[in-house]
């Protein structure tokens, strides 16, 4: 799924290749690594909720970061991962790191 080259539009409406991690993919990775998060209120984007509100603890975040690193062949700085409070912050960290590595 992550290796397809079709084009896609992410939540912000900006175009990006599927080689770049999408928000939906990140949430799916979190679910696979650490189980289903808490129910999200209708109308709220889970990407903007805190990991704590989603029911994911620091180990869930570490496990997710480790999976993302393996899948994308990147190295995330530990302190940056720890500082990410929401899935969107983690997503931005991944994209920034991948862009810097490219």
């Amino acid at each position: 799924m992550l290796n397809t080259t079709s084009r896609d539009t992410d939540e912000n409406g900006s175009e990006n290749t599927m080689d770049e991690l999408t928000g939906a993919e990140l949430m799916e990775i979190m679910r696979e690594c650490s189980g289903q998060g808490e129910e999200v209120e209708a109308g709220r984007d889970p990407l903007d909720l805190s990991f704590a509100d989603l029911g994911y603890d620091s180990l869930a975040l570490l496990e997710t970061a480790s999976r993302v690193e393996r899948t994308y062949g990147i190295q995330l700085a530990e302190e940056d991962v720890a500082a990410a409070r929401t899935p969107r912050a983690l997503l931005e960290l991944v994209r920034r790191t991948a862009a810097e590595a490219a």
């Binding site: 696979e32 690594c33 189980g35 998060g37 869930a60």
Partner: peptide
């Protein structure tokens, strides 16, 4: 058990 307990 809840899904979040299974991976751990």
């Amino acid at each position: 058990l809840p899904s979040r307990l299974l991976p751990q």
